[in-house]
């Protein structure tokens, strides 16, 4: 196993990733499911191919519900747009007594899944955006 590779550490420097801010999709609705769990509801875009006769047979829902478990809910609540990925990792590490990279692998993997499902986005830190622009210019 290459723990680094598995979590996208190929470049050997992950400062920009840690400095990014995970922000919630403001269009997503949150329903409290239990004491420690929530369901996040996001609107889905109707695919262009969803026209008759395909739409007669293929079901389409204008909303998608994503149930988060207790750990996922905790992570979701920490992603308030004020905390960086590094802050969230540190909170996760301290809460569950993990090492930094154990927490990093778990948090980054989970955030990636939330981003793929459209309930979370990542905002790059301003200085890392400038660095990126400088690199692009070079």
């Amino acid at each position: 196993m290459k723990r680094g590779d598995s979590a996208g550490l190929g470049s050997g420097d992950w400062r920009a990733m840690l400095a990014a801010y995970p922000v919630r999709n403001i269009a997503a609705a949150v329903r409290e499911k239990g004491e420690n769990t929530v369901t996040v509801v996001v609107k889905t875009q109707k695919p262009k191919y969803m026209v008759p006769p395909i739409s007669w047979f293929v079901p389409y829902s204008p909303e998608r519900e994503i149930d988060l478990d207790a750990i996922g809910t905790r992570l979701w609540r920490w992603c308030d747009g004020q905390r960086t990925v590094e802050d969230v990792i540190d909170l996760f590490k301290d809460t569950y007594d993990l090492s930094f990279h154990e927490a990093r692998a778990a948090v980054v993997d989970y955030l990636r899944k939330l981003i793929q499902r459209g309930i979370l986005a990542v905002m790059m830190a301003p200085d890392s955006q400038e660095n990126q622009a400088e690199n692009d210019a070079k």
Binding site: G4, L9, G12, D13, W14, R15, L18, E86, F100, H101
Partner: peptide
């Protein structure tokens, strides 16, 4: 074996 701190290898 490769070791890293919290920011880089």
């Amino acid at each position: 074996c490769v070791f890293g701190d919290r920011y880089q290898y």
